[in-house]
Amino acid sequence: MSLPHTVIAASAAKPKLQVTGLSVVYQSNGKPLAAVEDINLEISDGEFVCLVGPSGCGKSTLMNAMGGFLSPSRGSVAIDGETVSGPDRRRILVFQEYAVFPWLTVEGNIGFGLSKLPREEREQRIAHYVELVRLQGFEHAYPSDLSGGMKQRLQVARALAVNPDVLFLDEPFGALDSITRVLMRAELLRIWQAERRTIVFVTHETDEAVQLADRVVVLSSRPARIQDILTIDIPHPRNISSPRYLALRDELLKMIGLAYEI
């Protein structure tokens, strides 16, 4: 018999995603090599969190462990209090490489995770997400006919279509040119504000992090540990030449250990 008020209190305070004492150790030439060490992190529902760190620091390893693609050596990841034990459609990873299926059309890709729905509902959902990521007119196109930015938007649409609790994005715009990247950030923010999913976003760009995130988690170089957490308290849309923005960006640069004058 549990006390009612403690249960309510716990669920109110319970985070969407909870990482506890997470470590990942690889075997490299017979020697253990720590990629991620003792990560403790709580992310609440609907929050946009960026993981920032130097390249090769283990950001992607951390994200793969959170998504269930990699079993942690120690510690655990829980979503809604349920321990993550493998890939699951309630948490979808979006990859840096173009992971849309080249053998399916735009519609086929968005509908990939929806095969169990009745036909009518599936088509409605596909149409909704085609519109959301602005791929109207390309429903029957194959990925080989799409630009890099369109492929990534398609990947995001495929992920959102299955209604995931958490969306993990692993440097999703890393392979795009800088203009497309800025446009894609705006698109992602628009989509996030429309659908309010919990988003964990890995990047190595400080600007990207400050423009997108509610909180930025700064990771140290390998093995990745949480070095600092920076809360970005600017409402959207953010003015990227406002003094507050610049101050936060400089602080982030300082945390990473980079000079902000070249």
């Binding site: 693609f69 990699l70 079993s71 034990s85």
Partner: peptide, 8 residues
């Protein structure tokens, strides 16, 4: 889930 340990 992918295990980190490779075959020997």
């Amino acid at each position: 889930m992918k295990k980190i340990r490779q075959p020997r």
